[in-house]
């Protein structure tokens, strides 16, 4: 069997599938973003840049976009601050079976149902929920906490959802650092902080970057989490886009907003790429 035929027979089903489900839909969406209306039945549809114009005309959208990017940045930062030490402790301070078991314990929730985990937080945070109940039991007279349906609630839920991503990617790169390298550094007189900032962080940078990208992108596009935990305070660009498709049926606007969002995400990633290249 010649190579060409072999390669084609192995890869074409998967790539045809991806064409049908990713490439063509994204192209269709791009096409829609330039239409004046959804082309159903006999509606008059024309080409327009109006959908993109809307974004720049109404401050509402750009403010929401900014709010989403701020949320993305904050979630990513918190995940990094919480997750990196965790990955480090996991990789370097314990060994053997405990390590494997703990690692599994940490990443298991990561693959289990995201929706269910956000739902879990409503159980904890809501008025008369567990947290309020026990805090009032400990400190009578504290009264309602008012945590539910706030920005911090969304932040908490998202950090909880995405933290294991960061731990996973950082763990992989920290675990790959040879202990002898760290010992060599110590034998040369490097202190713990020097080792941490001059060796561990730079060597773990690929993991940090991968984790950050894998968190930042989906958080920007999140809509279920803000809706469930933020209620009326949970309006972000993701929820607006969702509305265009499920409630308002302004598909062209939703499409345009999606592409603006992806473009901006791409810009952010490009902005960070020199940092990545430096350490490659």
């Amino acid at each position: 069997m010649n190579q060409r035929a072999a390669v084609l027979s192995l890869i074409s089903p998967a790539y045809l599938w991806l064409t049908l489900t990713i490439l063509l839909p994204l192209s269709a969406m791009l096409y829609y973003s330039f239409l004046s209306d959804v082309p159903i039945g006999s509606r008059e549809v024309s080409w327009t840049l109006e959908n993109y114009g809307t974004f720049f005309e109404k401050a509402f959208y750009s403010e929401l976009m900014l709010r989403s990017f701020k949320l993305g940045a904050e979630v990513t930062t918190f995940c990094l601050l919480l997750g990196f030490p965790c990955a480090l402790a996991l990789a370097k301070s314990i060994g053997g079976r405990t390590k494997e078991a703990l690692f599994l314990l940490i990443i298991l929730p990561f693959w289990s149902n995201a929706l269910v985990r956000i739902f879990s937080w409503t159980m904890v945070l809501r008025g008369n929920g567990i947290l309020e109940y026990y805090i009032n039991w400990l400190l009578p007279g504290t009264g309602p906490l008012g945590l539910m349906f706030t920005y911090p609630a969304i932040l908490l839920g998202l950090v909880h959802s995405y933290l294991p991503y960061m731990i996973l990617t950082c763990y992989i790169s920290i675990d790959a650092i040879d202990n002898q390298l760290l010992e060599a550094a110590r034998s040369l007189g490097a202190g713990k902080l020097t080792i941490f900032f001059r060796l561990i962080v730079p060597l773990a940078l690929p993991g940090i970057v991968a984790g950050s990208v894998l968190i930042f992108i989906p958080v920007i596009g999140s809509f279920m989490e803000p809706r469930l935990l933020g209620g009326r305070n949970g309006t972000f660009i993701g929820t607006i886009i969702e509305d265009q498709f499920t409630a308002v049926f302004n598909w062209p606007l939703g499409a345009a907003l999606s592409f603006i969002m992806m473009g901006l995400v791409l810009l952010v990633l490009l902005g960070f790429s020199p940092l990545v290249r430096r350490f490659k």
Binding site: T21, I22, L24, P25, L26, S27, A28, M29, Y32, V213, L214, I217, P218, I220, G221, S222, F223, G238, I241, E242, F245, W251, G254, A255, S258, M261, M262
Partner: peptide, 14 residues
């Protein structure tokens, strides 16, 4: 690497 929101809506449209 593309938000599911966008993939989902794109599939819906297409």
């Amino acid at each position: 690497t593309i938000p599911w929101l966008i993939i989902g809506t794109a599939m819906l449209v297409f």
